[in-house]
Design a protein around this nucleic acid. Structure first.
Lengths: 193, 193
DNA sequence: TATCTAATTAGATGTATATCGAATTATAGA
DNA sequence: TCTATAATTCGATATACATCTAATTAGATA
């Protein structure tokens, strides 16, 4: 299971109102007005919660005339709740970084001009890390770079080399030792590129 | 398990960073700096997340020298993750809908003649529902009935099949779809029979 | 005791979201 | 077609929270 799916499932269940809805539906299907009445909330609020629960697949619905009945999918609930127990067991291994290639590509496209230079340094951590990884894609592992040399490399993309150089250290893409810079092993990177 | 504990557990796991921490610790204990390093976050952020995971009991810690190692408590994780599956199992019965069998039996006796036909349609809602449930006790769940077919079935008990058929819909014992009738799941019935 | 490092706390900031009321859509039935 | 009701959408608001930096605490050891 993907990291995002795990997160979304637990976010969905991590709300008192939604757990009360789950508890109600466990006894049998109900329609929206009935749920709203039983919980003392407005129908629009129930719609909001139902859609979150439906998004993660643990409830489905069936229309009967003018009324929509909501059902709890106990199998999905069980499957999702137990999924956290098997993370890191096989396919999750490659899941440490949860960005898909196409997402990374679109981030790069958004922040890199047609002439190859960097528009701005992203402020969102995820996007920033993708861009940082992109900027150093040509540097060689195991090779040491003088500060001046590194600055020149960064300047090909953006004039504010000092900020970017500092970010590269802070995000653990590189480390500095007595004035010399070197790439960290990719395992230490916050983003796999 | 209490509602709040359930909510807090799912809130705690419903965050990408914390799931990544769980994933890391599944491979073995780590100290704070190492986690921060591997995730590209500040140590204080790790403290924040660790405390949330510790609050719900799925992480414990042990000091070794100057370093505190954090461990994942897999048993607690498993217990908590499965807890959602057994909410509402403590038979909190709804007295409104739970007539005792002997009461239902006496209602049926009062309204059904010795030849099995229905004397009159009860006007009291509770009694009416008991009788309606009695009238359809032979119908099969999942089977669709033509209107004519349903009429014939009801006529065995009472001549005013139209009224009774309409009541069966209005009280959610059955539903109608494009001229065909079908039993609702018993969970929708206003009376459990 | 003084110092070093890991961990925590405190405060600030930006983002996410639970809830409501009002407006809108969808469907059944007249 | 018109009406009634259930459900949804939309915009607004208040709260929760993830993250950072800076400051502080705690423990080990010199």
């Amino acid at each position: 299971m993907q990291l995002d799916k795990l997160v979304n499932y637990h976010k969905a269940v991590g709300d008192p109102t939604r757990i009360r809805i789950i508890s109600l539906l466990k006894k049998g299907p109900l329609h929206g007005q009935a749920i709203a009445y039983k919980l003392g909330l407005q129908p629009s609020t129930i719609t909001h919660h139902i859609s979150k629960l439906r998004d993660v697949g643990i409830i489905y619905q069936r229309r009967q005339g003018n009324i929509i009945y909501f059902y709890l999918d106990l199998e999905r609930l069980e499957y999702n709740s137990k999924a956290i127990l098997s993370i890191g067991e096989d396919s999750m291994e490659n899941q440490e970084n949860h960005l898909q290639d196409k997402d990374k590509l679109s981030i790069v496209k958004n922040f890199i001009n047609s002439d190859g230079t960097l528009k701005i340094i992203p402020s969102q951590r995820k996007k920033k890390n993708v861009i940082l990884a992109y900027l150093i894609r040509d540097l060689q592992h195991g090779k040491t770079y003088q500060e001046k040399e590194l600055n020149e490399h960064i300047k090909k993309y953006h004039e504010d080399y000092a900020t970017i150089r500092r970010e590269l250290i802070m995000q653990h893409f590189m480390y500095r030792q007595s004035g010399e810079y070197e790439l960290n092993p990719k395992e230490m990177w916050p983003v796999i590129f």
